[in-house]
Design a binder for these strands. Structure first.
Length: 150
DNA sequence: ATTCTAACA
DNA sequence: TGTTAGAA
């Protein structure tokens, strides 16, 4: 029996678009804007896991309900403390583009990063995956609005 | 049949 | 965001 892994990318974009009621176009847009990182086959075709779908759904809801833009979501994601998650020393942290920039999350700086941040697949990274459910995004939003640090 | 990218009356 | 064209 093949267990259905929540993280296993198995759904093509058409299915995802249908089940979520979001156009394929919009889903590709989210990717281009750096909100999601779908799994890609050699062919270039995208595959999504259950968690990917929840993330997409969460993003769409947040955009609609909180009336914030795609760039707004990107700024929220930029608040993820990757340096803490990765346990970076102050020295490396302070010179890291991902720590300095508040516009983009670390995975949009991949080319400029060092160490495993540069080599690992961001899709598999604990930083990208720190948004396990919509609650984590809500937390980022809270922090943003209240302008507080944890 | 589906999905991909790129482009826009 | 929609839609379309042409390729894979």
């Amino acid at each position: 029996m093949k267990a259905v892994d929540e993280n296993e990318p198995v759904f093509p974009i058409g299915i995802v678009a249908c089940k979520l009621g979001i156009s394929e176009h919009t889903i590709r847009l989210y990717e281009r804007e750096g909100l999601i990182i779908p799994y890609k086959k050699e062919s270039g075709h995208r595959l999504f896991s259950m968690r990917d779908m929840e993330r997409i759904e969460c993003i769409k809801k947040t955009i609609n309900e909180k009336k914030i833009s795609i760039a707004g979501i990107r700024r929220l994601l930029a608040l993820i403390p990757c340096w803490e998650i990765k346990g970076c020393e102050d020295e490396i942290k302070l010179s890291c583009p991902a720590y300095v920039d508040y516009e983009k999350p670390c995975w949009l700086h991949k080319e400029q990063l060092k160490g495993d941040c540069a080599t690992n697949e961001c899709r598999e990274c604990p930083v990208y995956n720190s948004i396990k459910s919509c609650d984590e995004l809500k937390e980022l939003l809270k922090r943003y609005i209240e302008n507080v640090s944890i």
